[in-house]
């Protein structure tokens, strides 16, 4: 019925406007209301799938429930069971002293560092190559760079399992011929992190190269010309002209990398250690740990507490990011 009421206004806005000058302000207000309707889908979506789950999850973190209790509550509205499940801050106390949570945090940052920093350097190199005007078929190479990004993660996982297999993997078989190894790509901590980081690098290198490339191409020619007039060498031009001009882009990439890094899930899950992230939890990441508590151990409340923990980590990192970005911005304005 509401649709019927507003509909004439949509059909004849000009007529409504010309009909009477006095009624104009309220016509604008009505149009504003229509405007709200246009943006409503986003807000409805955000409230339903963004805000409410956050509130729900935070609330859940104060309970100790498994799936059966949860279903029982949904089915029979068994409020007593819910009351019994209230544990207050106990989940957070446990989280604070939970070695697996801190281990997962360490693993997550380790994999993040191994994947982000080399990736940035390689992406920069690739972007410089692609930015070279002498390069032939540049659009072909640019398209090629995006291919890893659109490949199914599961397919990638299967291929990488074969590359990093301990006994018959491509790398270890190769190393065998030069009498090195076998490297424990799955069983040991650092090698497994390197292997997972490689999967991530492979996937995101091209994407980041293209972002850097577009930023490089947007640098004004005059800067290079004046550097050339000043007699700057090629290396110095890159160091003093190109890189400073890419600051904002690099910050953007770091932020995106951090978001992706903290949500690291599919790669470690499909790497062959199941939900445990390996027998010694050597590549258990934060989200994988959350998923394990939720699905395997059926501790819904504790999983929610881990979720809150991850949020706090994200807030801390965002604050750091903000500080760094502000510093860069102020350097620019100097």
């Amino acid at each position: 019925m509401t649709t019927l009421e507003v509909r004439p206004e949509v059909v004849e806005p000009k007529a409504a406007a010309t009909r009477s000058r006095k009624r104009r302000p309220s016509a604008i207000a009505r149009q504003d209301r229509i405007g709200f309707l246009y943006v409503a889908p986003f807000f409805v979506h955000f409230v339903l799938f963004g805000a409410l789950p956050i509130v729900f999850t935070t609330g859940l973190a104060f309970f100790n429930v498994d799936w059966s209790t949860y279903y029982d509550f949904l089915d029979r509205h068994n409020f007593q069971a819910l009351k019994d499940a209230w544990v207050g801050m106990r989940n957070f106390d446990e989280l604070w002293s939970d070695p697996y949570f801190w281990l997962a945090l360490k693993n997550t940052f380790s994999i993040w560092a191994i994947s982000t920093i080399p990736q940035l350097i390689m992406a920069f190199g690739l972007a410089m190559l692609l930015a070279n005007p002498k390069l032939r078929g540049s659009s072909f190479w640019r398209t090629l760079l995006m291919v890893p990004n659109i490949t199914s993660v599961l397919a990638v996982a299967i291929v990488f399992q074969q590359i990093f297999g301990r006994d018959f993997g491509l790398i270890n078989v190769g190393l065998h011929y030069v009498n090195v190894g076998p490297i424990e790509w799955i069983n040991e901590r650092l090698p497994s992190h390197v292997a997972i980081a490689t999967m991530i690098n492979w996937r995101w290198l091209g994407y980041n190269s293209l972002i850097l490339l577009s930023a490089i191409l947007a640098i004004p020619r005059e800067l290079y010309e004046s550097a050339a007039i000043d007699g700057a060498s090629r290396v110095k031009t890159v160091w003093y002209v190109t890189i400073p001009q890419l600051r904002n882009t690099i910050t953007f990439m770091l932020i995106m990398g951090t978001i992706g890094g903290l949500g690291l899930f599919v790669e470690p899950l499909t790497y062959g250690g199941g939900l445990d992230g390996g027998a010694n939890s050597q590549f258990l990441t934060l989200t994988l740990y959350l998923f394990k508590e939720l699905n395997q151990n059926e501790r819904l409340g504790y999983a929610a507490a881990i979720g809150v923990g991850i949020t706090i980590v994200v807030i801390i990192i965002s604050a750091l990011n903000f500080l760094i970005t502000r510093r860069i911005a102020s350097e620019d304005s100097r």
């Binding site: 074969q162 297999g165 301990r166 993997g169």
Partner: peptide
């Protein structure tokens, strides 16, 4: 035994 996990790519190859 080997260090191979069952039902992995290495297992089949092994």
């Amino acid at each position: 035994g080997t260090k191979i996990n069952q039902f992995t790519a290495d297992w089949g190859a092994g």
